[in-house]
Design a protein around this nucleic acid. Structure first.
Length: 638
RNA sequence: GCUGAUGUAGCUCAGUCGGUAGAGCAGCGCAUUCGUAAUGCGCAGGUCGUCGGUUCGAGUCCGACCAUCAGCUCCA
């Protein structure tokens, strides 16, 4: 028999004179590794430790340190949970249970549905199974065997899954003790490897994701290699809850909502001030980048949307009205149709291109009631929306500059891009294949020249054009989809847009839809949670507060207040009869950026005792020095 | 929109078996004039989400509706 050569990640090679498994290879390297091993990577594929190796391969033993193993661990943990549920609920039928980025879930049919009150019992049973350290074994089945097995076990959802496995694919099942699950795998070697898991919630989920089907019980949980990592994750969840923009929005009096205006926001003075700052900042930025800002109607006759295609595709999501004479009107759900009319208003020359139109107009979308949530999903909002009209050959240069702009804006808020997606031509599309290819290449080049890591979502583009989506990561590591850049060949065609090119011929422009913040409302929510309410000085609604030790110091405190106000600082005072500790506490809880205590010492030395929301107590600082610092910081963004 | 849960003072929440509603914080008043996360005392504050039903009697039981929350579907 020929030798099997196994190449390891460190470049070394091991040879065996017989077929081996990754577990055996790990054991031959060291008992520590053998014990830590959870799965293996063979020629780039993640497999079980019992996967037979019969030919020369590259092999990497995966321990809990690798992200791939974490996914395997969580996938196995979902089985662990399912086994526990089946022990406790005899009627439980399993549907599907994959790992996710944060943990795992399993869709289970059981009556009555599981509730969080069931969690302690389930977790206890999971612990018990962990102690049993049941070996996890893979078995390859024929379709008929699989059918028979799950038929016997009464798993009707599994039978449906079996039918949906494409012809020719391997069908496998995993067994641990009495529990058997249809599964592709791979899995950890035995149930004793779980050290840290927790069930986090339960929710309804439609069978096969179709609202017409019955609902299953989706039990969500998470698992980590160590207790410490789980605790850190749970702590992050707690922190996220503390930073929830709905809670901070109320506590800091930024905005409110009312049941008589579901999905709409009342911006209170402090929140409105911040909203206007963001809006003005974006207006200024766009002006500097060559955009003209417009303000366009909110209410249109339905004719506009019949031309744009919204009437046909999105009428359900629009607010519609009928005038006395039965003319149909709709509140605009997007700004682009208005901008098409602006472009078409006069004869356009290639010399005007790229023609950039910026619009922060109010738009309305009649979102389903169950989807509304705080500032992140609303029915009335504004976007930092813009449309750029350009010639096909101008795409790359324009998009390159645009991506640079997006990067600059997010850097200002200390946010990085977690992911960038380029979505390409879908199955059914509008326009010519060659035009699409060119456009996609132009977008890819633009991403390349901005040195961004990008994932290609093949076929995920809109039917009207390819797009780039940006996912940012906030300081808690959570990801948000924000900026988007979309090419559109559809609207220019529908509106019959033309410009006169260099050869004095009519040519159709391409339209770029782009938003950097996305919606101001949603971006505001992200900012609140990113900063946890501790906004940078330039954005904070109240930048400073002057606190007195006693009423003896009010005169000097008033002078400090006036000087700050004259310097353009948003400042207020707390001259109440409370003790200084109480005033500090109040200021801290209201997230006032700078708390300035003045008493005997300060009045005598023309200084202020400075407490920064983010840096803590900085002690006494000469008044002029503080004025200089805050004057610098209050305009950092502009 | 669908499933489930929730809705009691400005906020966070208690309210048992159906018998006229309670705390802490916030607010207001008085006293205190104090050195970096809560000074003390007092007062006031309620259509128990809305509408209807059962009952001698409903915050409590039943129904419908509204809103919110967790998901699902959706997010042009």
């Amino acid at each position: 028999m020929a030798e099997i050569r196994i190449q390891l990640p460190d470049g070394s090679t091991k040879t065996f004179d017989r077929p081996v498994t990754p577990a055996e290879v790990a054991a031959s390297i060291g008992s520590g590794l053998a014990k830590a091993a959870l799965a293996a990577k063979v020629n780039g594929n993640i497999v079980d430790l019992t996967h037979p190796i019969t030919a020369d391969t590259e092999l990497e033993i995966l321990t809990s340190k690798s992200p791939e193993a974490l996914e395997v661990l969580r996938h196995s943990c979902t089985h662990l949970m399912a086994q526990a549920v089946k022990r406790l609920r005899r009627d439980a039928m399993l549907e599907d249970g994959p790992p996710t980025e944060e943990g795992f879930w399993y869709d289970i049919k059981t009556d009555p549905p599981l509730t969080p009150e069931d969690f302690p019992a389930i977790e206890k049973e999971m612990q018990k199974i962990t102690k049993e350290a049941l070996p996890i074994e893979r078995k390859v089945l024929t379709r008929e065997e699989a059918r028979q097995l799950f038929e016997e076990r009464g798993e009707k959802y599994k039978l449906d899954l079996i039918e949906r496995i494409p012809e020719g694919d391997t069908i496998s099942a995993y067994r641990q003790g009495e529990f058997i699950d249809l599964c592709r795998g791979p899995h950890v070697p035995h149930t004793g490897v779980f050290k840290a898991f927790k069930l986090l919630g339960v929710a309804g989920a439609y069978w096969k994701g179709d609202a017409a089907n019955e609902q299953l019980c989706r039990v969500k949980g998470t698992a980590f290699p160590t207790r410490q990592e789980l605790d850190a994750y749970l702590k992050m969840l707690e922190e996220a809850k503390r930073r929830d923009h709905r809670r901070l929005g109320r506590e800091l009096e930024l905005f409110m909502q009312h049941e008589w205006a579901p999905g709409e926001i009342f911006w209170l003075p402090k929140g409105n001030l911040m909203y206007k700052l963001l809006s003005r900042m974006m207006s200024d930025l766009c002006r500097d980048e060559g955009y003209g800002e417009v303000f366009t109607p909110l209410l249109f006759k339905s004719d506009l949307f019949e031309v744009s295609g919204h009437w046909e595709h999105f009428r359900e999501d629009m607010f519609l009205f009928e005038d006395k004479d039965e003319t149909r009107y709709a509140l605009k759900p997007m700004n682009c149709p208005s901008h098409m009319l602006i472009f078409r208003e006069k004869k356009r020359s290639y010399r005007e291109l790229p023609l950039r139109i910026h619009d922060q107009g109010v738009i309305h979308r009649n979102e389903p009631s169950g989807t509304l949530s705080g500032l992140t999903r609303v029915r009335q909002f504004c976007q930092d929306d813009a449309h750029i009209f350009l010639a096909q050959e101008q795409i790359e240069k324009e998009i390159t500059a645009l991506i640079g702009l997006v990067k600059r804006v997010y850097a200002l808020f200390g946010m990085d891009f977690a992911k960038v997606f380029l979505s390409t031509r879908p199955g059914s599309y509008l326009g010519e294949k060659e035009t699409w290819d060119q456009a996609e290449q132009a977008l890819a080049n633009a991403i390349e020249s901005n040195k961004l890591q990008c994932t290609i979502n093949e076929g995920d583009g809109a039917f009207y054009g390819p797009k780039i989506d940006f996912i940012v990561r906030d300081c808690l590591g959570r990801e948000w989809q924000t900026a988007t850049i979309q090419l559109d060949y559809q609207l220019p065609a529908r509106f019959g847009l033309r410009f006169i090119n260099r050869d004095n011929e009519e040519e159709m422009p391409v339209v770029v839809h782009r938003a950097i913040f996305g919606s101001f409302e949603r971006f505001f929510a992200i900012l609140i949670e990113h900063y946890g309410g501790n906004f940078p000085t330039w954005l904070a609604p109240v930048q400073a507060r002057v606190l007195t030790i006693s009423e003896k110091h009010e005169e000097y405190a008033n002078e400090v207040h006036r000087l700050l106000q004259d310097a353009g600082v948003r400042v207020d005072t707390d001259f109440s009869a409370e003790k200084i500790g109480a005033k500090i506490r109040e200021g801290r809880m209201k997230r006032i950026t700078w708390l300035l205590t003045v008493g005997e010492k300060e009045a005598a030395s023309r200084s202020v005792s400075v407490r920064s929301q983010t840096e803590g107590d900085l002690g006494s600082v000469p008044l002029d020095d503080f004025l200089e610092r805050i004057s610098r910081e209050k305009s950092a963004a502009f």
